[in-house]
Design a protein around this nucleic acid. Structure first.
Length: 466
DNA sequence: ATCCTGTAGGGAAAAGCCCGGG
DNA sequence: GCCCGGGCTTTTCCCTACAGGA
């Protein structure tokens, strides 16, 4: 798929088809419903496949229309779900990502009304959240010149009776205008869904009346200052963060910079809490029981520990599992990455901003993650705590010693599908496959030589041109 | 000289796990 | 006691360099 397609077929401004597998099944259903595609009971992979096909078809239709229309000029418009069909309007981009909190069989029974408009409900357990990023309508740079149409072409003016639609009083911002990445209230505009409140499936009903717009109050002045203590003798220097992070004023969704949003999923929370009891009965964790026996080795101590706090132990652990494995309420609007907590998402956002606040004071190394700096600093020490029992190899990372031991064992889990080649490292298989594809991405600047491996090109240059 | 492979170093990013405070 | 934020550690993925045999 071309980069162009990747960007155009997104669920929202920058979310691409590649993100589809990371969406919740509820989100997939919702997006399908939004596109008026008949859904079926299906596993998530199937839904992803369906939605991907739909999005590609939309793009193809749009592409054909673009070619028919005057070349060199493309108009941004939004799909009017009320009046237009997919054949008539093919969206370049969607400006909002709607995240239903849950799919309830009786969701259609939920009331809807004006009270829900832009209202932070006291009980948010049933609230479905959405976020918008109208201002970040991105179109690939190599696309045709964009003409911003009139406001009525851009925005779907919400019906007065629509319970979820704030007024659209601002035109969409031209896609390449990204100077100010902050989301303003005026930038919000929800499309009126033709299927609002209408069951989309016998069992999976999405009541869009339960959606509310995210809270728009951003605390721009808040700074994500880092207060890292120096790492022992190496004392990594900490840079002042250049990017600000938008933190939630309350329980609302949180727009972060660069289209990053956080979602508060109270419904999921409630569901998880409701399931806590059952989960605790099934939960066992060998490692934790082992840890509890540090002072008293053996099964006895473990059993004793469990007896002392039979419920607290499993409940606490269960909370951990719920937090870190089941709930992922914080989503990055850039790539669809989901995090279990805000600080994880903040860290993730550094991968998009390029912020690298952690610096090694012994070299120029910078990183976005403190843990990586800790790993890096080990390089500057002589300590290599991991040693191979079969040879003299030593490593400062456990992963390195594990991989090394794998070489001794002769285990080669990566197999080529086209020949009998096997290897212990995935990268080797990737490199090997270039033989079958004939790919030689590394070209010599001084002759016609091309290599499938960078090191071979380096050898060639060294031998031929030096 | 070139191709191919094995091995290993290291960075980036995310996940796992834990703890303290509200 | 519970929940949340956040810190530290570990794991995973990927790219790359280097050496050596064919």
């Amino acid at each position: 798929m071309s980069r162009k397609q990747e960007f155009i077929c997104g669920l929202s401004h920058k979310v691409t088809i590649a993100v589809l597998p990371r969406l919740n099944i509820e989100e997939l259903f919702f997006e399908l419903n939004r596109r008026k595609v008949e859904k079926e009971k299906s596993i998530k992979d199937r839904l992803v496949s369906i939605l991907r096909d739909v999005m590609l078809e939309e793009y193809r239709q749009w592409d054909r229309r673009s070619q028919v229309s005057s070349p060199g000029e493309t108009t941004i418009f939004r799909q009017n779900h009320e009046t237009a069909t997919m054949q008539e309007n093919v969206p370049i981009n969607y400006t909002e990502t709607l995240l239903p909190k849950t799919i309830s069989p009786d969701a259609s029974q939920h009331s809807s009304g004006p009270d829900n408009v832009l209202k932070k409900e006291n009980d948010t357990s049933n609230e479905m959240l959405m976020h918008t990023n109208l201002k970040e309508l991105h179109v690939d740079a190599d696309q045709a010149h964009l003409t911003v149409p009139q406001q009525d072409q851009l925005c779907i003016m919400p019906s007065p009776s629509s319970p979820t639609l704030p007024p659209c009083d601002a035109p969409l911002i031209q896609s390449n205008n990204t100077a100010d990445s902050r989301i303003k209230e005026e930038d919000f505009a929800m499309t009126t869904e033709g299927e609002v409140g209408k069951p989309c499936h016998d069992e999976y009903n999405i009541d869009t009346s339960k959606f509310s717009t995210q809270k728009l109050n951003t605390l721009n002045s808040m700074n994500t200052s880092y207060s890292e203590t120096p790492l022992e003798s190496n004392t990594p220097v900490e840079e002042a963060p250049s990017a600000r992070c938008y933190l939630p004023p309350d329980n609302g969704d949180v727009p972060l910079e660069n289209g990053c949003h956080m979602f508060e999923d109270d419904q999921i929370k409630q569901t998880s809490q409701a399931s806590n009891h059952d989960a605790t009965e099934d939960y066992t964790d060998d490692r934790e029981t082992a840890d509890s026996g540090l002072e008293h080795s053996g099964e006895e101590s473990n059993e004793q520990s469990s007896e002392e706090k039979p419920f607290a132990h499993s409940f606490s652990k269960n909370i951990y599992r719920r937090r870190h494995k089941e709930e992922m309420p914080f989503m990055c609007g850039e790539c669809g990455y989901r995090a279990s907590s805000k600080h994880r998402l903040v860290g993730h956002m550094r991968t998009h901003t390029g912020e690298k606040p952690f610096k090694c004071n012994q070299c120029n190394y910078k990183t976005s993650f403190k843990g990586n700096l800790v790993q890096h600093i080990k390089r500057h020490t002589d300590a290599e705590p991991y040693r191979c029992e079969l040879c003299d190899y030593q490593a400062y990372q456990k992963f390195l010693i594990d991989r090394h031991v794998m070489c001794h064992s002769g285990v080669k889990p990566y197999k080529c599908e086209e020949c009998d080649y096997k290897t212990a490292q995935k990268g080797n298989l990737t490199r090997h496959k270039r033989q079958h594809t004939g790919e030689r991405p590394y070209s010599c600047q001084r002759c016609d030589y091309k290599a499938g491996d960078r090191s071979n090109l380096a050898k060639h240059i060294k031998n031929k041109h030096h």
